[in-house]
């Protein structure tokens, strides 16, 4: 009886611990002592994620939000792939928003990193017809929000 009970327990634990399906934007393994992903592998993984032909807006947003939650500035090749993905799902606002988010990720080194990013993604921008936030006038506050207590 004890043996069969412990067998059932093991089965339950195994089902709860081992995920049923793997999601592509999430690394395969999050435990310590495992293989460490190099920066190049990370960039390639995200580039491939955004380069998927059947990607939809939901997944693009998920990938961008994940990138913005990490302690890094996305590599220009990831940004390029993301802009192309925005083009495929016909979402212009998303493309501009992602460039803005990448600028915000530069933190206090924005004067060093952001010009480099713009220089690298410039061909993609002119190819797709995307304006930088500066060209749209979004580097400075444009509109003010009405105070919710005055509405």
């Amino acid at each position: 009886m004890l043996k069969s009970a412990s067998g059932a327990l093991v089965n339950v634990l195994r089902k709860s611990l081992v995920p049923a399906a793997r999601i592509s934007a999430v690394p395969l393994r999050r435990s310590h002592g495992g293989p460490v992903e190099s920066d190049e592998e990370f960039d390639c993984r995200y580039e491939q994620f955004f380069n998927r032909k059947d990607i939809d807006g939901w997944e693009i947003r998920k990938g961008m939000n994940d990138l913005c939650g990490m302690d890094l500035v996305p590599d220009p090749k990831i940004i390029k792939a993301a802009l192309h993905a925005c083009r495929r799902v016909n979402d212009y606002a998303l493309a501009v928003r992602f460039i803005e988010a990448c600028k915000d990720k530069c933190g206090n080194k924005v004067n060093e990193i952001y010009p480099y990013i713009i220089q690298e993604i410039k061909p993609t921008l002119s190819e797709l017809g995307i304006e930088t936030p500066e060209e749209l006038g979004y580097d400075k506050p444009e509109l003010a929000l009405e105070n919710v207590y005055d509405m």
Binding site: Y92, A93, V96, E100, K103, P133, L136, Y138, D139, L143
Partner: peptide
Amino acid sequence: ALYRASFCQTFAE
């Protein structure tokens, strides 16, 4: 207009 249809405020705002 497309940007403002998707988002309320820009990062700068």
